[in-house]
Design a protein around this nucleic acid. Structure first.
Lengths: 195, 195
DNA sequence: GTTAACTCTTACAGCACTGTAAGATATAGC
DNA sequence: GCTATATCTTACAGTGCTGTAAGAGTTAAC
């Protein structure tokens, strides 16, 4: 199983094109989940045929977009050292990291629509978040009355909601992280006054 | 401006067809936002041409679906008497009413996708919720640290998340209302332990 | 029972998109 | 400067959808 690499030179402009296409796709698909390959190519400054020169099908392009975004998101989460220190602090670090990733890949905010099969890629993200929530619950920092799965879902939903509110102009971008932090800590830590 | 109604008989089976089509559309579009008119017609037990006999365009059908669902949702909200009694109790009544509406019109859970122009219809729903949140804040029941708009967005997002979790099989349907109630009351009432 | 309304079958025009292809032109790499 | 690589232009086949249309058959309403 040696890597028999035929003398395939990979030109620099080709690499630039691929990057431009994936970037453009991430942007365009964020505001139009059904965007055509034509539209993506135009946004990338290339022709449709160039896209097909690098991605055999539209589906393959979408997979590349989601794959790259997810890879960066996972790297950012790992860099946040979620297993270290108080769970609440780790959650804040996670929120900051996620927020940056969403700014870079707004397409992730629409990661539930046709074609964008995030099912496979979303798993690892959920897993890290679930691990953090469970750690917080076991340490007594997070409330145990609500299922961990639900707390994970709530965290993701509230994060997405903040992105949508900013996009809708109802929430200043500078306040977004703050309100998410306060809201989620209230849910996760519980307050004893309810039930 | 008198209503000059030409002697237009409206047959019973036609009314049944229309109802069946709108019902089917609500169901089918819930799990496939891009469902074709063909698919909707099949689910309704009629042919595509029958659909076009009652709705001139696909868009007109979608508007009818969203319109009817929104009308029922608004009626349910008004029946919940949101202006009466403690705001927290009113919120619980609102959640129960909304839950029932979502069960009847699952398409509302996807009310953010292409074609489904809920922008116009979603306004009144937001308005009622915003009114309730503001009332609670002024009465001192709800926390004033977070913007009312954000609390509204959070309420909607958490409600939708519960629907998605149930659909994904991660949350028993019987527990959904409970976890939503606890989670939202925590966010809305605040706990004083965060900031 | 008659009639008008409704539905079904079949058919077609038009459009937008995906994917493929060939030849011409430009460009990076050595 | 030469060459393989990459891109652009133009073109075409195939598909699935929307919307329109006509005629035959069916059913509710009076």
């Amino acid at each position: 199983m040696s890597e028999l690499v035929p003398p395939r030179r990979r030109r620099a402009d080709a690499e630039r094109s691929v990057a431009a296409i994936v970037d453009a796709a991430s942007r365009v698909l964020a505001e139009q989940a059904e965007a055509s390959v034509e539209a993506i190519a135009a946004a990338a400054g290339v022709t449709r045929q160039t896209v097909y020169a690098h991605f055999r099908t539209r589906e393959e392009l979408l997979a590349a977009v989601v794959g790259r975004a997810t890879a960066e998101a996972l790297a950012a989460m790992d860099a946040a050292e979620l297993d270290t220190g108080p769970a609440a602090d780790a959650l804040v670090r996670l929120l900051e990291a996620s927020w940056r990733t969403f700014e870079r890949y707004p397409v992730l905010l629409r990661a539930d629509q046709p074609g964008l099969s995030t099912e496979d890629d979303h798993g690892p993200v959920r897993a890290r978040l679930l691990r953090l929530v469970r750690r917080g619950q076991e340490a007594g920092e997070f409330d145990r009355a609500l299922p961990a799965d639900w707390l994970v879902a709530t965290t993701i939903a509230v994060g997405h909601a903040a992105g949508a509110e900013v996009a809708a102009g109802r929430l200043p971008v500078g306040e977004a992280l703050g309100v998410v932090r306060v809201s989620l800590l209230r849910v996760l830590t519980g307050d004893g006054r309810v039930q």
